[in-house]
């Protein structure tokens, strides 16, 4: 087990190296120049040359690449090309907002989606099922950022229950700022979890071993909770792992709507300013998240069903 985790963690290194390489070249293929973006329309060509020289952009591409790799491996991502702030500081300020939002949304998603999904599967065809499926359909059908805007209009502009801008200061204030964005993403997540739970539970309920258990006269709730739900959780966990990543991505628009200073807004701004250093570092952090989430998903699946070999 430990060996498995170690090996998976070691696999992180090539993944991230690949991400680094991909991002490095993808950014440089794009038309546009960080110097023009940073200096603006009045910049004379000599100022632009000076800027490029200062940031090493006049070096040959391979030299830039190796310099960047060497820096990145020591965990030093340098300064933002656009505004000179240390990348470490920018990320340290942005990350907590994004992580808090993704986790809060996931928590809401599981808290609502899992029980609702199980109930709808057990009572399929009944009123609860109809309600659950309707809920999931609605949750899944609203464009999340537009839903966020509606929440903002109702609960912030008109009712003034929640703040409108920023991420807040101090724990309670931050929590206060988190509510609306978390609900925006959380409800979509809940709809997803509910559907996934329902469909995989139904899938499992028709399997041979469930039939066998029923045939042996095992009590129905035991059949569901001991045999069925546990097996049904595997696709649910995988699906949620995948969806958590979608949610991380969804944080971008929601952050924009609620003006949260998170990773998404940082990266979007970075791409449009051709802030190579910032986007590179941000995507490495994101890649790291993805690897961790995937690893956690696989470990969870293994914990739920030991028959899944951890190779």
């Amino acid at each position: 087990m430990t060996g498995y985790i170690l090996r998976r963690l070691l696999e992180v290194v090539p993944t991230i190296l690949l991400v680094l390489t991909l991002v490095f070249f993808a950014l440089r293929i794009m038309p546009g120049d960080p110097a023009v973006a940073a200096l603006g329309e009045f910049a004379a060509p000599d100022a632009i040359d000076r800027f490029r020289e200062k940031l090493g952009l006049n070096q040959p591409l391979y030299a830039q690449y190796f310099a960047f790799l060497a820096q990145a491996l020591t965990g030093n991502f340098g300064n933002s090309m656009n505004n000179g702030a240390p990348i470490g500081d920018l990320l340290a300020q942005a990350l907590p907002y994004t992580i808090a939002l993704a986790l809060a949304a996931t928590a809401i998603g599981i808290a609502i989606g899992l029980p609702l999904g199980a109930m709808t599967a057990v009572h399929r065809g009944g009123k609860i099922d109809a309600f659950g499926r309707f809920f999931a359909l609605i949750g899944f059908s609203l464009p999340d950022f537009y839903f966020g805007v509606l929440l903002l209009l109702a609960f912030s502009l008109h009712l003034d229950w929640f703040p409108m801008l920023g991420g807040g200061k101090g724990f309670l204030d931050q929590l206060h700022h988190l509510v609306l964005p978390a609900i925006t993403l959380g409800l979509v997540m809940a709809a997803f979890v509910m559907r996934l739970t329902r469909s995989s539970l139904l899938e499992v309920l028709k399997r041979d071993y469930v039939r066998t258990a029923r045939g042996k006269g095992v009590a129905e709730h035991l059949v569901i909770f001991k045999h069925a739900l546990r097996n049904a959780l595997i696709p649910v966990t995988t699906g949620m792992g995948i969806y958590l990543l979608t949610t991380l991505s969804g944080t971008i628009t929601v952050e924009l709507v609620f003006s949260r200073p998170g990773l998404g807004t940082l990266l979007i701004g970075g791409v449009s300013a051709r802030d190579y250093t910032l986007v590179q570092a941000g995507l490495v952090v994101f890649a790291f998240f993805v690897v961790v989430v995937n690893l956690a998903t696989d470990l969870l699946c293994a914990a739920i069903d030991p028959r899944i070999a951890l190779r």
């Binding site: 805007v149 209009l153 912030s156 502009l157 703040p163 409108m164 801008l165 924009l256 709507v257 003006s259």
Partner: peptide, 16 residues
């Protein structure tokens, strides 16, 4: 506040 919507709403509400 790069988003026009957010900026406008904050202004209408009186936050800015």
């Amino acid at each position: 506040l790069p988003e026009t919507a957010a900026r406008t709403l904050a202004f209408v509400k009186g936050d800015v």
